[in-house]
Design a binder for these strands. Structure first.
Length: 302
DNA sequence: AGGACGTCTGTGATTACCTCA
DNA sequence: TGTGAGGTAATCACAGACGTC
């Protein structure tokens, strides 16, 4: 995967010290300032950082990412084809809330304990549901038995589709979805909770991997620039040598503003960058980073 | 080939805690 | 300020896939 920093909407600044060669995730945090909030307008649709649009990632999670924050500000879209989620729950809905078995599921869920929320909301109804829908014998319902429900493919597909639209559900949507799928609203709620949690986890992993590569790339560039600085300083101290040498650096001068530019180094002499980074534009405002600041100090102005 | 097994992974569910109206 | 609803984080427990013998 190759990302452009601007495309990702990332604000990444590094302040490498001389000892920045030792890069590991733990000490990266001390020198990295990150702003990982994706900008909807700046993100390409193919970027995994773009959680607003359907990505082409192979994993199911990757194909439908949205942050909850993103979804909260999204324009409302037609949701749950054929279901009017805005209608008030009917008596039937209330019955659904009370508990519906899952006809498509391989097994209904049962838990040793009930959440406080369920107890306060509709505990007795859930109790009824649990007894009626699990389809288990008394032996199977032994102490702490926690048989797992497995949602059918259809149910999962509908949930996925819904998650693409809204990563969070309001009560009406939850009821409607539960009714449509023949699940308890609590099950839908749990599914969305888990989905959000695991989406976030995966996204964090992706972000971490990307930043790691950014860090490695910038470290390499920093090393190269430090080397150039040393070469320039050496030249400054021995002008006679300078007269007999071809410029050992990769620096060139901009003819218009007479500032020093850094063309990309020849590929044969440098390690290929693992991450496609935005090219540093020396004609733009100086970068507020240590190495670049000191580099700027070497620039000559007329 | 196929069955028993151990391990890994995905996922439904629970619990504790936090935030906010 | 107390309370309930709804969120996240951490975790548990199970089912199924998979590799190995």
């Amino acid at each position: 995967m190759v990302f452009q920093k601007e495309d990702l909407g990332l604000s990444l600044s590094l302040n490498f010290q001389e000892s920045s060669n030792n890069i590991n995730p733990s000490n990266c945090t001390s020198s990295l300032e990150l702003n990982l909030m994706p900008s909807a307008s700046s993100l390409p649709s193919t970027s995994p950082f773009n959680l607003f649009q359907k990505a082409s990632w192979p994993e199911t999670f990757l194909s439908s990412e949205k942050t909850s924050q993103a979804c909260r500000v999204m324009e409302p879209k037609p949701f749950l084809k054929g279901i009017d989620v805005n209608r008030l729950p009917t008596t039937a809905d209330a019955e659904e809330e009370a508990g519906v078995s899952s006809p498509n599921s391989t097994l209904s869920s049962v838990s040793g304990k009930r959440s406080e929320r369920d107890l306060t909301n509709n505990g007795e109804d859930h109790e009824t549901e649990r007894d009626s829908s699990r389809g288990m014998s008394d032996e199977e319902d032994g102490e702490n038995s926690r048989k797992k429900l497995r949602l059918s493919k259809d149910q999962s597909a509908v949930l996925e589709e819904s998650f693409k639209e809204h990563s969070t559900l309001n009560p009406k949507q939850k009821l409607a979805l539960a009714r449509r799928l023949g699940l308890r609203p609590r099950q839908v709620e749990v599914w969305f909770q888990n989905r959000r949690a695991r989406t976030k986890l995966k996204q964090t992993e992706v972000d971490c991997e990307y930043l790691k590569r950014c860090c490695e790339s910038l470290t390499e560039e920093n090393r190269r620039l430090q080397k150039e600085v040393q070469e320039l300083r050496a030249l400054k101290l021995s002008p006679q040598l300078y007269m007999h040498m071809t410029p050992p650096t990769t620096l060139t001068m901009c003819s218009s503003c007479e500032r020093v530019a850094v063309p990309p180094p020849p590929p044969t002499t440098t390690t290929p960058s693992p991450v496609a980074r935005p090219t540093f534009n020396p004609w733009a405002a100086p970068m507020p980073l240590g190495p670049h600041r000191s580099f700027d100090a070497l620039h000559t102005r007329s």
